[in-house]
Simulated assay, not measured.
Amino acid sequence: MAQVIFAGIDISSLKCDLVCLDEQGHQLAPAKSFANNREGASGLVEVLDHLAHKFNIQQLHIGLEATSVYGIHLREFLLDASPLKAYPTEIYEINPVMVAGFKKAFGARRPKTDVMDVYVIAERVRFGHLTPYRREAMVTEPLRQLTRLRLHLVELLTVEQNRALNLLFLKFSNYHQDRPFSQTFGRASLAVLQEFTPDELVEMPLEDLVDFIQSHGNNRLAEPGEMAKTLKQLPP
């Protein structure tokens, strides 16, 4: 008779797959799929509660693959589910990289199942050496998501700026190297790049170019005269 159920849950934006194993790795019931919404979460809890009663289990260990944000609502639902409070329950968020690495350990002895990934998650929970999720971590969850978003945007901006610098080289080969402006993508610099060709900068009176730089720099640039001179000396 099983004393512990090791449940693996594979989560996507639309559904959750569930596999439950006992201590020996035997599958306690056929794999089931549930919609990734409140109704689906309720159905998943009912299955866990049913198996817990059927096998008179003493502990419940649930592993969720940490796939983006798709498992957050289910994780919180499981923590609050009244039927599961009858058993000592631990929930683990498992990095997909860890799951992929553990999957390789099966080699040619992979189980014959249509839901290999969720089976591997359950086996990884059974293997142990995981840190249970603690609700205190939810306090920093919004900040973590915002930090990840900011990092993604910074990386995306860097890629696009490098692409722009490659194109800029075709118009002003020395523009980025000579740095007439401290910020190549600053407001005044972009205005110059959008309005003038190299030949037009050479022909433009110095005073007019200084006025143009000042007006597009909100009169905050320290040495617009030196910037204008550098621009007029740039090779095409």
Rank of each mutant, 00 (worst) to 15 (best):
T140S: 11
D117M: 11
L153Q: 11
S12N: 09
K54L: 13
R110S: 07
Q24R: 09
I62D: 01
F181P: 01
S82Y: 15
G217V: 11
R163E: 14
L18T: 01
D208P: 00
E223D: 09
I94V: 06
R124S: 04
L18Y: 08
F127L: 08
S33W: 14
T113V: 08
A86R: 13
F212L: 02
A228G: 04
Y70A: 00
L143V: 07
E160C: 00
S68A: 13
V210W: 12
R126K: 14
L21Q: 04
K15S: 12
T197M: 10
F196T: 02
I72R: 04
R187K: 15
V19E: 04
L165T: 02
L153H: 13
S33V: 11
V19H: 10
P236L: 06
A222T: 11
V19G: 00
K103Q: 14
L84K: 02
P132S: 04
Y119L: 06
R144V: 08
A29C: 11
K15M: 08
E141A: 00
V118Y: 14
R38V: 15
E203A: 08
V97F: 15
F55Q: 01
L51D: 02
A66E: 08
C16H: 04
A191K: 02
Q27L: 02
G43Y: 14
E136T: 05
D178W: 10
R38Y: 15
K103M: 14
A66K: 02
K104M: 11
E136G: 01
P30L: 05
K103C: 10
P96Y: 11
P205C: 05
E155P: 04
R124F: 12
V115N: 08
M1D: 10
L149R: 09
R124H: 14
D17H: 05
S215E: 13
R135V: 07
L234W: 12
G43H: 09
Y175W: 12
D211V: 04
F106I: 02
V210C: 05
G71S: 12
L190H: 09
E76S: 07
L14Y: 09
K103W: 08
P224T: 03
F127Q: 12
Y175C: 00
P132V: 07
G128T: 09
L209D: 03
C20I: 03
A228C: 07
T131N: 11
F102P: 01
L146Q: 14
G63Q: 02
